[in-house]
Amino acid sequence: MKKNLIIATLLFTCICIHAQTYHVASVNGNAYVLKNGERTTLTPREILRTTDVIEIGKNSSLAVVDKKESKLYSLKETNAEQLSKVIKSQSKSAINKFAGRFIESLTRGDTEKISYEATVSYKDMAEDLRIYTALKNAATQSAYPVLFTMIEQSSGQTLKGEAAVGDLFFFRITNKSATPLYINILNISSDGSMYDCLPIDVGGTMLHLLVPGYSTVDLKQYPMEFTEPKGEDSFTLIAHNKPFDLRNVIQYFRLNENTSANKAFIGTYKLSTIVK
């Protein structure tokens, strides 16, 4: 009787394990399932079992969903291995994540921490006001030799004064001075509304917008799109040797702030585009 019960329990467990399935959610690069000695390329919506042997190529990833457990597992490069084993070896527990993050902070692998330490004058609101004063003053001349162009994303060609709604582009910034400069671009659309084109990080360090001296940088990671309203879009590059927050500058413009602050020495460069 006892023996039968054990066999029945084992059988039930086997069935349960065997029944567990995973749905392929996405495949980036090369991922295969090996069945009967054959290697078949995996595609989204396919169903895998825990016992299936999978292989994920170099620089590739495979995402599978366990609908019963409501969990998605994204798996990276692996040699031919059973799916359940791959999931087990590549999953991180909460304590593991914490330990990893903690060691990262201690060893200064945490770039944001470094950026805070490297930057002394973050969130200097007075600097934003001085930049606003400089921009408001029509007689302000550029203090640094900086320029930028707009590069069409699809063709890689420089945009020449005209674009259509929906066109995607990115900025190419050139700093011809020896000073590393923090940059951002102010966009004024035909209806007078103002936008900051490049994102400010939460710490306001702007290290991602720091252009080294004598260099040209393509900001491909920040794609832009021409949108409504149609008409003339004006772009002004602002370059400064200290971090600044363009959102504050825009706010000063919106409030039409009266200022007696000294104007900042900033590099500026203007371009206009007709959006059709």
Binding site: L72, S74, E77, Q90, K92
Partner: peptide, 11 residues
Amino acid sequence: NDGAYTAFYDP
């Protein structure tokens, strides 16, 4: 840049 991760799947 995390290649492998686990997330809650909302069905």
